[in-house]
């Protein structure tokens, strides 16, 4: 099963580069959503003695949260807040891509120097995790819009989740707590929506006030 897992991690690493190169917000959001679904499938193909209800729960929660709920919230925010769909990079797409590609390479090299348990040595989980964390940072720091920063945060979080897969099943209440990061993302998005709605009301109110005065 390691082969299949590595293929999935490889696709996730490729999607990182797509996210770095993408110039439109809906594309960025959908890329992150696909990443979320892939991450959700991974616990199911990890090598374990017996099928475990806990792993299944993590898988379902991840697909539902990262793959469906958060992306749909993000798309909704895009609509409700009437945000322009361009990404507006602070750091250009080509430099971002180059940096991301170099980072992915560096992650693979760095992993050679980290001691891994025998059952993890053949997987791409650690380089995938490091590369995603780095991609997340590039998006967080290199994009102007709040929504693209949220996407960056999601990619960063996906990297942490990949690393967490190494510990899944052997350490109670550490990996599972990562779900709170998704809650953080939820707060981000709700914040954007609430703020935009409040401001709309504010401006409506003032307009009405001037109307009354006249």
């Amino acid at each position: 099963m390691t082969g299949l897992l590595n293929v999935l991690v490889g696709v996730v690493m490729g999607l990182n580069l797509v996210a770095l190169a993408g110039g439109r917000l809906p594309l960025l959001i959908r890329t992150v959503a696909v990443q979320g679904v892939l991450l959700g499938l991974m616990p199911l193909i990890l090598e374990h003695e017996s099928p475990d209800w806990k792993l299944a729960a993590v898988a379902v929660a991840t697909v539902a949260g990262k793959g469906l709920l958060i992306p749909s919230l993000l798309l909704r925010a895009l609509r409700v807040a009437r945000i322009d769909r361009e990404v507006e990079p602070l750091l250009g797409f080509v430099p971002s891509l180059l940096l991301g590609a170099l980072g992915t390479l560096a992650a693979v090299v760095l992993t050679e120097f980290l001691p891994l348990r025998a059952e993890h040595a053949a997987t791409l989980l650690v380089p995938g995790a490091l590369a995603s964390v780095l991609t997340g940072f590039i998006l967080l720091a290199g994009r102007v819009k709040a929504l693209s920063q949220v996407c960056g945060y999601l990619v960063l979080e996906n990297g942490i989740y990949l690393f967490g897969l190494l510990l899944l099943g052997s350490t109670p209440l550490l990996v599972e707590s990562g779900i709170l990061l998704d809650v953080t993302v939820g707060v981000f998005v709700i914040g954007i929506i609430v703020d935009r709605i409040q401001r709309t009301f504010d401006s409506l109110d003032t307009r009405r006030l001037t109307v009354l005065r006249e």
Binding site: Y153, G159, I160, F163, S177, T184, V187
Partner: peptide, 25 residues
């Protein structure tokens, strides 16, 4: 606060994972 603090919390979770892996290893 949320972006910077949230990133900080993400890093500390990754750090906690590393410590967990140190123990497992």
């Amino acid at each position: 606060y949320l972006v910077v603090g949230g990133t900080g919390m993400a890093l500390s979770l990754l750090g906690s994972f590393c410590l967990g892996y140190a123990s497992l290893h």
